[in-house]
Amino acid sequence: MRNSEKQTMAVIGAILFLGLLMGVSLLLSQFVVAEAQEKETSQIQTEDSASSEQEEEDKEEEEDEEDEEEEEAVELEPGFQKVVDEVRAFWKRESESEIEELVISPFRVPPRKEQYEYYPCMDCHEEQEVQPERELTEEHEDLVLDHGKQRFWCLTCHFAGKEKNYLRSLKEQKIDFNESHLLCGQCHFERQKDWLMGAHGKRVGSWSEERTILLCVECHNPHSPAIKPQLPDPIPKGIREIRMERSNQPHKIETKHELIKVWDRIALKYKNERTK
């Protein structure tokens, strides 16, 4: 039984390996890829083929597999590559070596694509053309673009052509929606490093097990990323307020008077001295 299982696995593995090679050669014919990058992809491929379970999954979702290959092809800026290496070095753990949902990240993010109402975009955009004007009038008109001080528009981050299921880097590379931080990190690279390392953003689930962090867009609306002021939760009731409330006295929670700012105070002092 075991032997036969192994044999079948080997056969499937070989087929998959061949398939992957074909995919890569196709890609190679499409893009000009640096040699170093090529080496890396082949390394990852061999790693992939090593674990048979993953391969079976891969087989089931052939489309996804293709996506992955394309993602691998995202050429990273040399500066960012350094950050990625750093992140990997910091976060890579032996126990987590199998968890590779994202290509570059040794951590998991809750998948984003499933959350989108309109995803995959190509379902509609197969037929519908992209409106050439900057003003959105027919669809998506609820979107308010308040990002980048009017220097951006839709096609800064989205493709106009057939690649609409992906985000578009400034170099026109395809970026998966589940890896949107690569897009944000083009400008917000320092924030991105913080996020990758754990000083920004939010880890969910467990502090001890596999690291799962929320993508930028979970908290920031990418079209209007600034978080708006809102009313806080109720003011804590001090002992005074509780007493007044219980004795049915009218009361107002005491708020301190406006304080004079440090710089104003100092400025005032100098101003007074000078007018003397």
């Binding site: 002021p229 809102q230 806080p232 003011i235 001090g238 929670i253 301190k256 700012k261 440090v262």
Partner: peptide, 29 residues
């Protein structure tokens, strides 16, 4: 009410806890 966490509204330019406001919340933050 018992709260384990107290959020202090601090003046920019100062770390003086005595100038903090514990009871902010009538306006948006």
């Amino acid at each position: 009410e018992i709260h384990y966490i107290r959020v202090l509204e601090m003046e920019k330019g100062s770390m003086d806890l005595e100038k903090s406001n514990h009871y902010f919340g009538e306006d948006p933050v």
